[in-house]
Every structure is written in C-alpha cells, then in structure tokens.
Design a protein around this nucleic acid. Structure first.
Lengths: 347, 347
DNA sequence: GATAGCACTCTCCCTCATCGAGTGCTAACA
DNA sequence: TGTTAGCACTCGATGAGGGAGAGTGCTATC
C-alpha cells in the first residue's frame, strides 16, 4: 500500500477510535498534517473504500473503519503506546498480592486489567494439568463427612466436603490419608487417574468407596471445574461505550459473558504463544461481531500457563491495550515464575 | 377508604404492574368489571390523585401508582399468588443441593431466586457470629507457609494460606494445632477473641507470631469478610425491565449493586422478623428510588440466620414475589435447620 | 497528480399540523 | 345524591416539510 494511503487509513482509524464518529476528508486533512487538501484525501478514501478498508454509514457521512481496516491497522500501522508511570505502578501494585492464594490473586488481576483498560477483562486460571499435587489432607467433620483439602504446586488450593456412604473412624482416615499422600503427592496432576487411585487402594483393601469419591474430587476440582474457570471483570465498563447504547446489543453481549464455555472458547481461540488481536467477525463465537479482543498468554518458567484478555468494541484502542496486555502478561509471568522457583527451592 | 376506591386503586396498580403503561379510566372500567362507567372511575381517580395514591405523568395520560399507592396496595389490597407446581419444584430442587458447602449452596439459591422472580436476587450468607468453631486444621505447605482450614458448625468452610515470618517444623505445627483445637473447638465463634488466643499461646510459650496471624485469619474470614458476603444473581434481568431502558439509570443501579456495603445496608434495613417490602424512596440508600425490594429472613432453629431478597423496579409484581420469597425463606429455614439438627446429633 | 469549485445526497433538527387518548367539567338523569 | 353522557380541552406521539450542515463525487483547471 502506498505511504500516503496508509497515513490516511491510520488517521481515520485513530480518529474514529478516539471519537466514535465517522471521519470526513476535511478532518483528516486538517488534524493529521498530511500537507494535502481534502480533495486529495477524498480520492485516497475512495480507493480505500473500494478495497474494503473503510466504509460509509451513508452517502453524506464520513468513513468508518471496516474489520479489514482494523486488521490492517493492527498488523501494519499501530504504534504501541508507552504506559504512564501511574499505569506501571497500578500493575505492579496488583502483582504484589499474595500469589499463593491463586484465585484471589487472579481476581485482583482481573479487576486491575478492567480498571486500567476500561474494557471487560477476562482472566483464565493457570491450567490445572500443569504442576504437581503438593499435599492432600483429610479432615474429619462428622461420622459421615470428610473435608478433603488439596494443594497444587501452582498455588491452587481446593477443598470439598464429601459425604461418605459409611462411617469412617479417624484412625482409618489417617491411614488413608497417609497412603494417599505417599502415592499421590509429587505426581503430575494430569497423570493422576481414576485407575491409579483404585489400584492403589485395592492393594490396601481399604475403603474403596471413599477412594472413588476422593479421586472424583481430585479430577473434578483440579481439572474440570477450575481448569476452565474464567474470571470476568469490568463488565459494566461496556455501558460507557457508545456502541452499546442499544439495550438489545448489551443483552446479547452480557448473555454471552455469562456462558463460561463460550468465554473459554474465546480466550482459547488465541492459542499462539504471542499476543493475539481478534477483530469483529474473526471471533469464534456468535454475538460478538461488534467486539474485538486482545489476548496475551502468561508463562511459568517458559511454559504457557494461562491467558488474560480484554473484550471491547471493535473501536478498541488497540495501541494502548496491546501495550498494556503485553506488560501485564510479562509481569504476571515474572511473578508467577518467581513463586514457582521459590516453591521448588522450599522442597 | 371506600370499597370502590380501593377497587379502582387495585385495578390501576395491577394493570400498571402488568403493562408498565399509564392506566386510563376507560381501561379500568372495561377490564376490571366494576359495573360503573369511565366517568365514575374518573371521579374516583381524581380523588385518589388528590390523596397522593396515584399520579399523572402528563395531563392527557392515564394514571400511574405513586410510592404511597404501592404502599397502600402492599399493606391492604395485594393478594398472594399461589405458586405453580413447577415453581414449587424449582425451589425444592435448588434446596436439594449440598447444604454443607454453604457458599455453593447460597450461590445456587441466589440463581434460583433470580430465575424464578425475573428480578435481581440478593442473598446474605448466614451470620457467622452464630454457631461454633468445629474444627481447625493446619497443613504445612512449605517452611514458611501454613494452610489454615476452618470449619464452622454453620457449614462454612474457609481456608487461607498464611506466610510465616519464621520457619516452623511440622512437629511444632502439630503441637500448635492440637492446642488450638483444645482451646477453640466448640467455642462460639463470636466469643473467640484476639486476647483469648494470645493468652492461650502465651501459656505455652510457642510461636506467638503465628498465633496472631491465625487468629487474625479466624476473625477476618469467619466474621468480617464472609459475615457480610452478599451474593447477587440475575443482575441482567434488569435489562428486560422497561424502566431501565435508560443506560444512565442502569449504570447508577449497577454501580450500586457492585458496592457490597450498600447492598448490606439494603438487606439489613429489613431487620424485622417478618417479610419486608421496601418501596422506592423508602430505600435506605441513594440511587434506587425507582426500585422496590422484598426481603425475607430465614431461621435456623428459630433464630434468625440470614436474609434473602429481590430487587426490582417499583412496578414489582408484589403478590407473586412476596409469595415466592415467603416460600423460599421457609424452605431454606427448614433445610438449614435439618442440617443443623443432623450436625448436633453427629456429635 | 493535486486542487478548487460545485452540485448532490443524506442526516439532523426544527416547526407545524394532525391524531388520539385521556381528562375535567357540566348538565341531565335515576 | 350519586351516576352518567356529552363535550371541550390538553398534551404527547407521529409524520410531513423544510432548511442547515456535513460530506461526498465529479469535473475542470492548475
């Protein structure tokens, strides 16, 4: 694409992102010193429209970027925005939280992201398959109830009260606990299988039923339930976006955000290692055609651990948001890797 | 108030609740067979307006109920609506959940309420001061970290990872755990004080610092943090209410719902033992003048344990909502009292 | 190739007239 | 005295008409 056309496209997109209103040739010529007259800009714009980068809401309005236009912008024109010291500080502040309480930590990250970006934040917990089972604790609650507490090396802590079909004496419980620890602690979580636990307990001939339930819990809580847990924050930020002044649009978008599996699909659609920008129709689920998404992954000791993302209108401030997400993801990776190292050293 | 005037007021309110549009004299005369002409109704309406029960948005519109009108309606005219068998079933279904996992249970109640009423549900966890500390467990995580797990007789389970300022050997930990159990289990939670724990540990001369942190945790998690935890559900239901078609109204209302302390104030404003209906301006916080609230308390063995409520527009379907909330609260009381009994028997 | 000029298009906004729902008042009626 | 029919009146909603203004596309000119 010729240099001037790029500049015109750049100007249109920047202006539209800032003001949410169609941009005319005059405005481009005036505000973004290209040194040519509006008429010249008009010719360029006409070309850009023909090529599908911009469109006209109606004949006598200015132009707005199309999805293709945003895509070109993100790929070729966009400049990262330097974060202000206040923003850097806010990120680092949120990272100071206790990483060991993973859920709490993720929640606060989520809030920080939404406050910083003014969009809706999506944060996926670190993948649970990763890491090892650190500790397992069985706490007697009553004759028929046992509280199972699980600790994973990733910092996830889970508890669940399980009802037992028979009475279990606390001596037995201690024995089972010990056996479970011997066999399971230090194992990769994804390697722990139903069969494995059953076999182990078959050897010892104790309390098969309970073992089954306990294992079910391990699988459920450490893999299924929480593996896919996605925190959302700043959903209400959407209310301030002019593109969502329409209640029906809001409704369909909020409905989507409440569906965990769709959110997951959204976040996981960006599974490349690098930061990913998804624009409008590129989204893998229905109902967010007016939205764009920026997703960054975070890594623990070089291995992908999870994703963070923001969802906003296609008129997203890509430059700013991309910078922020990159920085946040790198900080997150750093903090969580530190934590991981410390964990490994402690053992 | 004369009988016919009551009937007119009743008709106006019922109609407005159903259709969200000003009600004219003709509509009242026609749909609600009072056997008199619109002109007669007009006279009654004129009186009702003078007395402040209804108002006119503008001269040539019908009448809408005022807050005073709703109040009279709720106090004198409203008929409870019988729940359908499907509704009864839905409530009982939600109650079948595992009560022992209190938070999960409350969350599901919250969802059930919002789905059933189509309004926003507010559910306050059982008060934490109530009940006793059942068990306390210290799980070593690393040299400097201990996971403290607390069980309360009310079914609340809490865990928290605490960082220790010094290394603690697992033998020491076991000892501390034992001492804590001896001294704290079975005690009323609200009776456990900072001083109490400190004194106890001063006797044994061990690990004061850790004790302090542990106690802080007990206080924090069992009283402060969760005592005031309020679940919300169905916030998005508000989007379907015509009175919230205005984005700004939505914004201010959502902002309020995100403030936990204001929510608490709302729920607690109805501290009488009976079910309470709060209408518009009667609300104890700013920004919900267009809303009404129905709050019911639930009881465990005769003692008030917590509250459930719904928040909707003043044009709330009071008859239906009141019936529902009464039924749900009574079921909740029953289920939780059962659980309590079972707990006490197990010991 | 760039630009100035100009006719053209379309939205936005204002005004005006009409329509209809609903009222309040008055006079008549039971 | 309470009820009703009739009627004039009010006021919002709706839609047509008419600038004003923004922005375009086209053409002729530099």
């Amino acid at each position: 694409m010729e240099e001037r056309k790029k500049q015109v496209l750049n100007a249109i997109i920047k202006d539209y992102i800032a003001n949410a209103e169609p941009v005319g040739s005059r405005a481009v010529a005036k505000k973004y010193g290209l040194g040519v007259s509006p008429a010249t800009i008009r010719n360029e714009m006409s070309d850009l429209e023909e090529e599908g980068y911009i469109e006209q809401p109606h004949t006598s309005a200015g132009r707005i970027p199309s999805a293709k236009g945003y895509r070109y912008f993100v790929d070729h024109l966009m400049e990262r925005e330097r974060l202000t010291s206040a923003q850097l500080k806010a990120v680092r502040q949120a990272m100071r939280g206790e990483v060991s309480e993973m859920e709490e930590f993720m929640r606060s990250c989520c809030n920080m992201i939404s406050q910083l970006t003014h969009y809706t934040a999506l944060v996926a917990m670190p993948e649970q398959g990763r890491g090892t089972l650190e500790n397992i604790q069985l706490v007697p609650v009553s004759d028929h109830q046992v509280l199972v507490v699980l600790l994973a090396s990733t910092g996830i802590i889970r508890h669940k009260l399980i009802e037992l079909p028979m009475e279990v004496k606390s001596d037995d419980l201690a024995y089972i606990e010990q056996k479970m620890r011997q066999h399971l602690c230090g194992k990769e979580i994804k390697a722990i299988s139903y069969e494995m636990l059953r076999d182990m307990l078959a050897d010892y001939q104790i309390r098969e039923k309970m073992a089954e339930q306990a294992l079910e819990l391990i699988e459920q809580t450490l893999t299924k339930e929480t593996a896919h847990k996605i925190f959302t924050g700043g959903v209400m930020n959407m209310l301030s976006q002019p593109e969502f002044r329409d209640i029906d649009k809001l409704k369909s978008m909020f409905a989507l955000i409440e569906e965990d599996d769709k959110l997951e699909k959204l976040l996981n659609s960006a599974d490349s290692d690098r930061l990913t920008v998804t624009i409008g129709g590129e989204m893998p689920v229905e109902g967010v055609e007016d939205c764009s998404m920026v997703v960054a992954n975070y890594f623990v000791n070089g291995e992908k651990a999870g994703s963070i993302g923001v969802l906003g209108p296609t008129r997203l401030n890509y430059g700013r948001t991309v910078s922020m997400m990159e920085f946040i993801a790198s900080e997150l990776s750093r903090v969580m890797s530190d934590k991981d190292d410390k964990n490994n050293k402690n053992k």
